[in-house]
Write a protein that binds this DNA or RNA. Structure first.
Ligand SMILES: Nc1ccn([C@H]2C[C@H](O)[C@@H](COP(=O)(O)OP(=O)(O)OP(=O)(O)O)O2)c(=O)n1
Ligand SMILES: [Mg+2]
Ligand SMILES: [Mg+2]
Length: 981
DNA sequence: GCGCTCTGCCAG
DNA sequence: CATCGCTGGCAGAGCGC
């Protein structure tokens, strides 16, 4: 990879340079024409705006001519493909079979297209110039059916082996006859090189989560991601709409339940299938069995039409299963843009009615409407009126979207949802009388909110035999008490009431709850696809990318959270290493762990560090990971945080702030993208503040510093180092092992006889484990502290040094490793040790040894002199405290003198810098939680050790809760600060 | 009885 | 090659206080 890394850099640089040259050329040309025409120039129409064009092989006109034409008309030209997807069009007059597959996801178009576009002065439909002719799909037997290149290419790819069985004619491709010799006779050597990059080993396609662009790529293609995002957007939009309407003093319709209420449930029929099918006029949604999917076997079917359903095909089913049921199934590609478009038409139409009491978006293709008032105000027969409105809505929506919707109506939400099942497809049904007869024969599974598990459990409860599906008629025979004892209070009641047609769900969105103003209670990023890691470093990188994704979403909403949860999917016992679905998660066991951050944040550095720390407490080997979810709860509005006493914190506002590396944003996100410019301004601002402070004193506001994005922090840190205001050795960037220096401060010479320090020697040494000469004495073994420091190197962001909660965890892991090495065979531990050794080698630092006497001398420490040392800043305390906790644990807890000293210190700190105080308390909790978990999972501890540790942890917790926490709490109460310890 | 964490369920 | 198994809310069990 290394050699290719350089190669790639070369290309990237070259790429950037070319854009500059292109821009210069465009300017030059404009000036030239201005000269010719005497200043009065007609700017060329930017017909290729948005196009990124790449030329492959020999073309007519030539590559250089195309290059010129494209850039003069507003397009971009790239002479190589740095990664898939960077070009929007590939211009090519000949295509080898190999290239055909390589370019399957591009719009491959003949050079004449460029010429004709300029002739017509407009961007012509590229499909008329596509290199490969459209496939005929007159017969519905075809296993394809899209006009998109990708499917044609698929067809071409499989034609050789399965054309007979699938019953379609291979494409006629005389072009392929040209073969390699002709097609690859590149006159542009650079292009050839670039192509080798793409097709060779150097450039990997986005496959698993290790690729830097995996998240972007994955989310761009994930239907479930789209569904979730659309839903959240809609909820927010309608929530805001209600807020606005309430403000404009419009009396909100009173809630009505019972006989009068009319709830309408409107839902597109097989939405994705119908919408995608509209891209293919030759297909008939009412006759051809159609599914929307990515792949051909273990790929999910997002939506299938009603023809396919007649065969037993269902949404969510795999293609292989569907094909078994219906061999002639036609697979179509997703078209998320068009789904969004149709949905938008639909919702705008509904809003324009302005007669409904409530409009409640359920999903992109589905709403619940409370039309009680409207029908109350109508004359005549209710059923007739409902039918009339339903028919009109269906008709109008079809005119707008060419998609059919169905409508179910009844007196409550549950019955409306059931009614629509009867209505579909392309129908309507108003359930108003004979409810019991309607319900009785239905399956319990049909009830909304009652899924597989509950149904199964109920089946066990009712019949002795399992699985046969329980009808509502049978459900009614169970008493409410019985249901509640089996399913719990809520679920039991729900089952009981639903069976009798009772449902009091209101469509009204509660805007009175102050918490509801945020529109949500949690926000999360989940990935359970493509998760395959070999090393913890890969995982760490991915966690950072996840954190950045979460950060962008928090920023987009202008919120922060103070509780973070990491959920891991671990390959289930007995599940195959490679599940049937490529890069899927397979059968998994789920483990979740949450952490209170103390104060709300959206900083990805903090989030990332925290996640790494949580993971390390999880005891799940990286190789076993199949999925990762992170989620923020206890959300707060950024403005609320700002106005509530913690103003000094530089929390980012709703928009316009972003770290240097722009984070992935959802493609459909309408929020204006934050700009880098603002970051720069911000950064300069911060730096100048810092300059002022330098003038006064070397008094860096660590609190502010801590809350900054890591890149800014690093910049400031460099500045501080330059000015000698920050101990350089605290920087893992420049001196990874340097933190040893504070160990020297921490443990002064007064203890014991002939103290031996951990020292970092600058000498370059290959093998740190074999350096007896530099050792003060005794047997050689790696210092746990030295190991700890080397771990820091794994993290690339500066925040990990100052903010990381991890140190104590990892360090203790290592200590445990050393102490109980013989007893522990844990996979993770071993790999951790390897990692450390390797890291030490990499860092080429030689660490001298700590004798066992020295270690035991430390554990008898009674005071931490650091408290008396004014030179140690508050933040630098953090790692020291972890040391303290750990040392004292072997003594069944901290010494009361130490507690008193720290309590005194804390009392002062709290008024000076609350944030740091909170951070320190958190360190304690973390360290204790970690030790606790070690204790819990390590069954090989001796009873004595266990007793010591248990007592120590208990004692610590008592001290923490009885002494330290009240100090902070009292201060906060006195100053009216809202905290969450 | 209350609040917290963790797990499971469900829908689109 | 494949494939793109997300996300948020609610309920319940279990635990500490
Ligand atoms: N397991 C699922 C369920 C749904 N969807 C997507 C595709 C669906 O088209 C869309 C809407 O979901 P519906 O439940 O409304 O299903 P359909 O619209 O496809 O069918 P119908 O509503 O006619 O039952 O959500 C999905 O991707 N995966
Ligand atoms: Mg639908
Ligand atoms: Mg739907």
């Amino acid at each position: 990879m290394h050699q290719f890394g350089d190669y790639r850099t070369y290309f990237e640089t070259k790429h950037l340079k070319q854009q500059q040259i292109d821009d210069e050329y465009v300017n030059w040309d404009r000036d030239r024409r201005a000269d010719i025409s005497g200043g009065d120039i007609q700017p060329l129409k930017p017909i290729f705006s948005g196009c990124v064009v790449h030329v492959n092989g020999h073309t007519n006109p030539s590559i250089s001519e195309i290059h010129r034409l494209i850039i003069l008309h507003g397009g971009k030209f790239i002479s190589f493909l740095s990664s898939k997807g960077s070009a929007t069009h590939i211009i090519c007059d000949r295509l080898t079979p190999r290239k055909k597959i390589e370019f399957r996801n591009y719009k491959v178009v003949r050079a004449q297209w460029v010429v004709d576009c300029i002739k017509k002065d407009t961007l012509l439909d590229w499909t008329n110039y596509r290199l490969i002719e459209s496939v005929e799909y007159g017969q519905k037997r075809l296993d394809i059916g899209t006009a998109e290149i990708s499917n044609e290419e698929e067809a071409a790819a499989i034609s050789s082996d399965s054309d007979v069985e699938n019953g379609f004619l291979p494409l006629t491709q005389q072009k392929e006859q040209d073969g390699e010799t002709n097609g690859l006779a590149e006159d542009d050597e650079e292009v050839a090189d670039a192509m080798r990059q793409v097709s060779g080993t150097g450039e990997k396609t986005v496959l698993d989560a290790n690729h830097p662009d995996f998240l972007k790529h994955f989310f761009a293609n994930s239907r479930l991601h789209h569904l979730s995002m659309w839903k959240a957007d809609l909820r927010l939009k309608f929530f805001r709409r209600i807020l606005k309407m309430n403000k404009s003093a419009k009396p909100k319709p009173s809630k009505r339940v019972g006989e009068n209420a009319v709830i309408m449930h409107i839902d597109f029929d097989c939405f994705f299938a119908t919408a995608s099918c509209l891209n293919h006029p030759k297909l008939d949604i009412t006759r051809d069995p159609i599914v929307v999917t990515h792949g051909r076997n273990s790929s999910d079917i997002a939506s299938c039409n009603y023809v396919a359903r007649a065969f037993g095909v269902k949404n969510g089913m795999w293609v292989s299963e569907a094909r078994r049921l219906c061999p002639n199934i036609v697979r179509l590609d997703y078209d998320f843009d068009s789904y969004e478009k149709y949905s938008s038409e639909f919702y705008n139409y509904l809003v324009s009615y302005d007669i409904f009491d409530h409009i409640f978006p359920v999903s992109i293709d589905e709403v619940l409407i409370d039309a009680t008032s409207y029908f109350e105000s109508m004359e005549g027969d209710l059923a007739a009126n409902v039918a009339k409105l339903s028919a009109r809505i269906r008709e109008d929506v079809f005119k707008l979207t060419k998609c059919t919707v169905s409508i179910g109506a009844s007196h409550n939400v549950m019955l409306a949802k059931l009614s629509i099942r009867k209505a579909k497809p392309d129908g309507q049904f108003f359930l108003h009388d004979n409810v019991e007869q309607f319900l009785d024969p239905l399956s319990v599974k049909d009830l909304p909110g009652i899924g597989h598990s509950i149904t199964e459990k109920l089946a066990e409860e009712i019949k002795n035999s399992s699985t046969s599906d329980v009808k509502i008629r049978e459900l009614k025979e169970l008493t409410k008490t019985r249901l509640m004892s089996v399913f719990g209070e809520k679920t039991g009641t729900k089952l009981f009431e639903y069976a009798r047609g009772i449902d009091n769900t209101s469509l009204e969105i509660d805007t009175t709850d102050p918490e509801a103003v945020l529109g949500r209670k949690s926000i999360s990023v989940d990935v359970n696809f493509g998760i395959r890691f070999e090393t913890i470093a890969q995982l760490d990188n991915f966690l950072i990318r996840m954190s950045k994704e979460l950060y962008s979403r928090l920023i987009a909403l202008g919120i922060c959270g103070s509780s973070l949860t990491l959920k891991l999917a671990k390959r289930a016992e007995g599940a195959p290493i490679n599940p049937p679905k490529f890069l899927g998660s397979g059968r998994c066991e789920y483990i979740s762990k949450s952490s209170r951050l103390g104060i709300p944040t959206n900083d990805w550095g903090i989030i990332g560090s925290e996640l790494k720390a949580i993971y390390r407490m999880s005891n799940v080997p990286v190789k076993e990971l199949r999925g990762i979810s992170i989620s923020m709860t206890k959300l707060k509005d950024v403005d609320t945080i700002k106005s509530s006493r913690q103003m000094q914190l530089p929390f980012r506002k709703g928009r316009g702030m972003i770290t240097k590396e722009p984070t992935v944003t959802r493609e459909h996100n309408k929020t204006p993208a934050p700009t880098n410019t603002l970051t720069k301004e911000k950064k300069e601002g911060v730096t100048s503040v810092l300059h002022e402070q330098f003038g006064k004193e070397a008094n860096v506001d660590w609190e502010v510093f801590q809350a900054l994005p890591w890149d800014i922090r690093r910049e400031i840190q460099r500045e501080l180092e330059r000015r000698g205001l920050m101990v350089k050795t605290y920087s893992p960037v420049k001196a990874p092992l340097g933190t040893k220096s504070y160990m020297q401060q921490l443990i002064p010479t007064q203890i014991g006889s002939a103290p031996k320090y951990v020292r970092v020697l600058e000498t370059i040494t290959k093998s740190p484990t074999k350096s007896p000469s530099k050792s003060p004495s005794k047997r050689q073994r790696l210092s746990p502290i030295a190991k700890k420091e080397s771990i820091y190197e794994d993290t690339q962001s500066y925040d990990s040094s100052i903010l990381n909660e991890l140190p104590s965890s990892v360090k203790n892991e290592v200590i445990k490793d050393i102490e109980y090495k013989k007893k522990i065979k844990d996979y993770d531990m071993t790999s951790l040790r390897d990692r450390i050794t390797r890291k030490l080698e990499d860092s080429k630092a030689q660490v001298s040894e700590v004798s066992s006497e020295w270690l035991s001398a430390q554990s008898t420490l009674r005071k931490l002199p650091v408290f008396l040392n004014n030179k140690v800043t508050s933040l630098q305390m953090q790692p020291l405290l972890s040391e303290w906790v750990e040392m004292s644990l072997s003594q069944k807890g901290p010494h009361q003198d130490d507690i008193a000293v720290f309590a005194g210190y804390l009392t002062k700190l709290v008024s000076q810098n609350l944030n740091i105080a909170l951070l320190l308390l958190r360190s304690f909790r973390k360290a204790l939680a970690y030790h606790q978990s070690l204790l819990d999972m390590n069954s090989s501890l001796s009873e004595q050790d266990r007793g010591f540790l248990m007592e120590g942890i208990k004692d610590w917790n008592n001290n923490l809760n009885a002494i330290f926490c009240p100090i902070v709490e009292d201060y906060c109460v006195a100053n009216n600060i809202d905290i969450d310890l």
